[in-house]
Design a protein around this nucleic acid. Structure first.
Lengths: 135, 135
DNA sequence: CTTTGTGCAAATTCTTTGCACCAAA
DNA sequence: TTTGGTGCAAAGAATTTGCACAAAG
């Protein structure tokens, strides 16, 4: 499996200790975490880590195209290292976000238009997940 | 053309002066405005209007299904009175949001899955709009 | 050295909450 | 008079900024 620091170099990102730790977390935990979740997960083993660094790091990752920023959650920014074409489902009840892979490839085809230069598409679904349906 | 207070009644929303003003603004200005944009546009003619009321009003509209809350903008909530199936395009440069109507109906078909009960879909495009391409 | 990255604290921005007053039925 | 709506001020949460120190080359 590709190591986080190798992955970072593919996007011309210098792999500092902090950056590798954030990327490693994203690669091993496909849970579309918020900044806070990433910070909370890493602080125990990196006590000097600051949230500012997590912000800086993710801004850089997004800018370089190494991760995708999800806007599906109106409240917090979330990050996904999966660059391949897939959608996201957010449960209105528990707030968890799941990947949706079984989508037609045509979903990700960019529409023909001369008005805009479109370079990415985001497909988000909303509803209630299985484990929340009893509630 | 349908009046804002008539439209509100279709969704069982009591048309107060403030609510009608907000809905009227949304119907006449299809610009996917933020809370602040709506507030700033209405305060001049309604000096006692408060931003809390704009928040309350839009929460109610969304809850009743009269408007759609857009999550395309990572920073601010935006609102769209257009309920029909269409996508949105956001310019990374100027931040403006445009409707995208020429989409295949299949884009809005909900995928078959037993894991979630999906009840809505949001299709967002990102890129650079025509007027920003020179910059 | 010089450049780049990190981290603290403060500031900003957006949104929510608590509560008192106002308006409509 | 009772219910629901409005609006102020304060609180809360997420993010950004300014700046000093640390690390890497």
């Amino acid at each position: 499996m590709l190591q986080s620091h190798q992955y970072l170099r593919q996007f011309s990102i210098k792999p500092s200790v902090q950056r590798s730790a954030v990327m490693n977390f994203l690669m091993k935990n496909r849970i579309h975490p918020t900044i806070d979740e990433i910070y909370m997960a890493l602080v125990p083993t990196m006590p000097t880590l600051s949230k500012t660094t997590v912000y800086n790091t993710l801004d850089l990752f997004v800018e370089k195209g190494a991760v995708q920023a999800l806007v599906i959650d109106g409240r917090n920014a979330r990050y996904d290292v999966n660059i391949s074409a897939h959608g996201h489902f957010m449960c209105k009840s528990c707030g968890k976000i799941h990947d949706v892979f079984d989508l037609d490839a045509s979903m990700f085809k960019l529409p023909e238009t001369t008005d805009f230069k479109i370079d990415s598409v985001d497909v988000s679904y909303f509803g209630v997940c299985k484990s929340c349906q009893g509630n």
